[in-house]
């Protein structure tokens, strides 16, 4: 029973990776098409808003429905369809893995990566119902593809029972919420990178042509902010849930374990990001850089800290 489920899971992982690869290609084709088709003079649509917005509160107009026909590109539609199929395979891989192990599929580095990437892509797909963020497809799918590939090749371990310290309901809550937070930070990072590129272009310093089909830097910043806020709430919860669990399992709620330290660092960086939005001179590109640093810290915490740092969160299984 179990070996076959594990095999199903692996087959699904590799199929998902193949489909994601196609989706990634389609996303980049879409970006390339946008570049070639983009009208030259779409810039400077929002240049006037800063002067008007000075004295009153924040004049935010989230530009969601771009007037351009880019959203109807066939490549983009194909990319989204492929991503959805890939995600279905990916999710079933995580599901089979969980069934094979008889527990949640996030108890070692391979499973973390498998499930985290599935949730990131899932959040990316779900978020489209709220805002059209399909232009982040290449970033998100490419990122998850790399992580999934690394995990399958380098981090793979067989299903083994949970060590005693992980046998807790908090494993389900704490880790799941941490991954959800990571997903929103990933989207925020993608938006912030785009924002930086867009700001460069708006300043007349050039950049890839497809930027002309994307929202303005200010709109991107507002989107990034909203996405990261959600991530920040999840991260705060992760921190507290982790402390409650640590009290149960290790006898103290906070002990500056390496993983705890990095979770704290990430929380502080994003707290800084939120304050940066309200600080003169820090809005715009500077806060975008903070968001990117924050997400880099998340990835550092997930990879380097898990694999190379000594600490109590030694559950990579490697």
């Amino acid at each position: 029973m179990t070996p076959s489920l594990v095999t199903f899971s692996l087959i699904a992982v590799y199929s998902a990776m193949a489909v994601y690869t196609l989706a990634f290609i389609a996303f980049t084709v879409d970006l390339a098409k946008r570049s070639s088709a983009a009208p030259v003079a779409v810039a400077a649509t929002t240049a006037s808003s800063s002067a008007a917005g000075r004295a009153t509160a924040l004049l935010e107009r989230v530009v969601t429905d771009q007037p351009l026909a880019a959203g109807r590109s066939r490549a983009l539609k194909a990319a989204m369809a492929l991503t959805t199929i890939g995600w279905a395979l990916h999710a079933s891989a995580a599901l089979f893995r969980g069934l094979a192990a008889g527990r949640v599929p996030w108890a070692n580095m391979f499973e973390f990566s498998l499930t985290a990437t599935a949730i990131i892509v899932g959040v990316f797909l779900a978020v489209q119902f709220w805002q059209d963020l399909r232009f982040l497809g290449a970033f998100i799918v490419g990122f998850c593809l790399i992580l999934l590939g690394l995990a399958s090749v380098n981090f793979y371990v067989d299903v083994i029972p949970l060590p005693d310290a992980l046998q807790s309901a908090w494993l389900v809550i704490h880790v799941f919420v941490a991954i959800l937070g990571t997903s929103f930070f990933a989207l925020g990072a993608g938006l912030s990178v785009t924002q930086l590129l867009q700001a460069r272009r708006e300043a007349g310093r050039g950049g890839p042509g497809f930027l002309a089909t994307l929202p303005s830097a200010e709109a991107l910043e507002n989107l990034a902010y909203r996405v990261i806020l959600i991530g920040f709430v999840f991260w705060t919860f992760t921190l507290i849930a982790g402390a409650v669990w640590a009290e149960r399992a290790w006898g103290r709620y906070w002990g500056w374990d390496t993983k705890e330290v990095w979770t704290f660092i990430i929380w502080t960086i994003f707290a800084g990001y939120i304050h940066a939005r309200a600080t003169r001179g820090w809005r715009g590109s500077r806060s975008a850089v903070l968001a990117i640093i924050g997400f880099s810290a998340v990835m550092f915490n997930f990879t380097v800290v898990n694999l190379f740092f000594k600490g109590l969160h030694a559950y990579s299984g490697l």
Binding site: W262, T268, G272, A278, W282
Partner: peptide, 20 residues
């Protein structure tokens, strides 16, 4: 001021690194 608070916040994040 906001700027100092922000600076201290980021400095705190940075200062926590060596301990890890």
């Amino acid at each position: 001021s906001m700027r100092t608070a922000l600076f201290l916040l980021l400095l705190l994040a940075f200062a926590a690194i060596p301990g890890s």
